[in-house]
């Protein structure tokens, strides 16, 4: 089977990794780089537990071939925040208690990061449409929406 050395920049760190053709990006992150924040949930791109940002766009890392990610910039939940401090999205999730079991949380936080980068002041339909691909089985949707709205408000206030 094809093996190939790929270059993956993950959370700003450049990695040279030899991967197999059938290896998914999620497997590379979890098994080779010990970045276990992204989780396997459905393995079908439905639940979003494995969401990471690839060149700033959210992808299901369970369904991206590692080789296809060669040369890409990957951001995982571990790469958020700086110098040990939490990212404002992470802080907002805590503030609004936007999780229970939190298995979906790393993926959701990245989905929110993308959402706010695209729509700093999202409308309600945008909130729901752009987060619809992330399942939270504990049912923390209300708190998650509150967290995102608070971030949008803050962004607006900072702009004014």
């Amino acid at each position: 089977m094809t093996r190939k050395k790929i270059i993956l920049s993950v959370n700003g760190v450049r990695n040279e990794i030899e991967v197999e053709a059938k290896e998914t990006l999620l497997e590379t992150l979890r098994n080779r780089l010990d970045l276990t924040g992204a989780k396997l949930g459905c393995d079908q791109q439905v639940c979003g537990s494995c969401t990471v940002l690839m060149n700033d766009l959210p992808v299901s890392s369970c369904s991206v071939l590692a080789m296809d990610a060669d040369g890409c910039e990957i951001l995982t939940v571990e790469g958020l925040g700086a110098g040990g401090a939490l990212h404002p999205i992470q802080q907002a999730f805590i503030e609004h208690g936007a999780f229970q079991c939190a298995y979906c949380t790393p993926g959701l936080i990245l989905a929110v990061k993308y959402l706010l980068s695209r729509f700093p002041r999202p409308t309600e339909p945008q909130l729901r449409h752009y987060l619809a691909g992330n399942i939270c089985r504990c049912g923390c949707h209300v708190e998650i929406l509150q967290a995102v709205r608070s971030l949008a408000r803050r962004a607006q206030e900072n702009q004014l």
Binding site: Q45, T51, M54, P58, V59, A111, H129, G133
Partner: peptide, 12 residues
Amino acid sequence: EPEVANIRVRST
């Protein structure tokens, strides 16, 4: 487009 699958599928 915003209704097609989900944002991750649309990204790739």
